[in-house]
Design a protein around this nucleic acid. Structure first.
Lengths: 213, 213
DNA sequence: TCGGACATTGCCCCAAAGGACAATGCCCGA
DNA sequence: TCGGGCATTGTCCTTTGGGGCAATGTCCGA
């Protein structure tokens, strides 16, 4: 799979060596001497990509960068590269959503499959994120009142109940409801509920870990 | 949190030492000299519990047991115990849903929090599993025809369309639909769709990894 | 101050969903 | 062979949902 590999390592020679291997394998490459550098030149997500990230680098550490990226809603899969076997850190990294952890010296038999997996996962998660963002955008277009109606509707309340709860007429609720369906781009209650459910599930996941996006 | 710790290790002295530490910490303990032994005496899931599992044991290995348990739909969190730092295996174990990986000698500062986390997670996942099983059970009570109607209904099709697609009368669909709502224990389309969505999402997760249950 | 976004309602009509009551036909295991 | 589960329909009536058409009132930024 074609894709871009972002290499973050403070050791210039290691960085270059890795870059060569990646280019030879057919990937686009971008290198960074520090985590901050990557954040500054934050790569536009145009295609499948991943990060080869050294754990121990000056300034923001590998795990620090991982956290920052998660906070920024990045979908870039991270493959950690570490000089020594640290089980504690490895567990933590994977739980935080890292794609893999490789120890130096990095064997190609491990590196290449890991990169391929990462790119494939990124492909998938980008798609998911795109769809979710689309839903969120639609949801954001609802007016406050429409949002209230939306929430009650997907909970299964009938117009009469909603009207009573919001202190309005059933006719009014119908009007809001109509606009909600319109703005959300669905034409059946089932689709609306399904959409709400997805937003909800994904919202929960996002709250839990950085792998959500 | 009170709970039971299942210890699997072929080294009797290590097993006993660990058992003592766990009892002292206030947990119920059950020990097994092999993975097979645990499978044979498969613990009934009565309360929060977890497994302290040695990676390298004769017969079924730790990871092997992990896989078997996943296939059996177990929700028991596994904390791996390993003699040496193996990053590859660690990554694989965590990805396969392991709760944690600890290296010997096992420090209490790592062990006790890990066990607590495992028990807490088990508590949660048991709850999720129970709810999911409930849904599955309800779904299983539907007759073939009702299942067909169920699927079309949650897709947002209206009775008329369903009737046409299934080659039946609208009246018939209403009858099936009514029984579906009844058997699934809901009284609004929204709830039915929500239920279907959960079953679907969780089904996907189950297919992906052993952590699903 | 004017136009636009938002919230609200009324009236009317049609389509769809929910249920009550009732009945028919098939198939299968006890 | 009989009872039960399952699938199917009919008729009739009520409740909900969906929309067209139209209008009013508030609030706010240009």
């Amino acid at each position: 799979m074609p894709g871009t590999v972002h290499i973050v390592d403070d050791d210039a020679s290691f960085r270059t060596a890795l870059e060569r291997r990646m280019r030879k394998a057919g990937y686009e490459v971008a290198t960074y001497a520090s985590a901050q550098q990557l954040l500054d030149r934050m790569p536009a997500e145009s295609g499948p990509a991943c990060i080869l990230l050294d754990v121990k680098i000056p300034g923001l550490s590998g795990p620090d960068l991982q956290q920052r990226l998660a906070e920024l809603g990045s979908t870039l899969p991270i493959i950690f590269v570490t000089g020594y076997a640290d089980v504690r850190a490895t567990v933590k990294a994977i739980k935080a959503g890292a794609e893999d952890v490789l120890t130096k010296p990095i064997m190609s038999e491990q590196l290449l499959p890991a990169v391929e997996r990462a790119l494939a996962h990124h492909q998938t998660s980008r798609g998911l994120k795109a769809r979710l963002d689309e839903l969120r955008a639609r949801l954001a277009r609802l007016t406050p009142r429409e949002t209230q109606v939306f929430e009650l509707v997907v909970q299964g309340r009938i117009n009469k109940q909603i009207a009573q709860q919001l202190g309005a007429t059933e006719r009014t609720i119908k009007a809001h409801r109509h606009r909600v369906m319109e703005k959300m781009g669905v034409d059946s209650l089932a689709e609306l509920v399904s959409m709400a459910e997805r937003l909800d599930v994904l919202r929960r996941l996002s709250a839990g870990n950085g792998k959500a996006d």
